[in-house]
């Protein structure tokens, strides 16, 4: 699983790429937290899931973990471009009430 980032003004964009499960999430957790720490002055983080081909509930746990970390910095969290499978479990687990799904710029 790959993770990349891009800072645009007040927004930190985090791009995830690959299959999100118990194995892959363990490998990107530290890098995600490092990116958040380095961009703690931003207002929000947008996780772009366009490259995520598969996600199970371990992915939900990962996202909620990052949400909690961002909240400690006073940063909001948003999700964009989940595929149909990821969208289904994100919707089912009520994650969008914490981190809204957005389209385009906010």
């Amino acid at each position: 699983m790959k993770i990349q980032s891009c800072r645009q003004g007040e927004s930190l964009y985090i791009y995830l790429d690959g299959e999100m499960d118990e194995h892959s999430v363990a490998a990107i957790r530290r890098e995600a937290d490092r990116l958040i720490d380095e961009n703690a002055g931003a207002s929000r983080a947008v996780f772009d899931l366009a490259g995520v081909r598969f996600m199970d509930s371990t992915g939900i746990g990962f996202l909620i973990g990052r949400y909690k970390k961002l909240r400690r910095y006073g940063m909001g969290m948003y999700l964009e471009n989940p595929n149909a499978g990821a969208d289904k479990i994100l919707e089912l687990s009520g994650v969008y009430s914490l981190m809204p799904k957005i389209q385009g710029d906010i």
């Binding site: 957790r29 509930s57 687990s93």
Partner: peptide, 10 residues
């Protein structure tokens, strides 16, 4: 451990 508790529900 950042577990969602959603496995069986899914």
């Amino acid at each position: 451990e950042e577990r969602s508790g959603m496995g069986f529900t899914i």
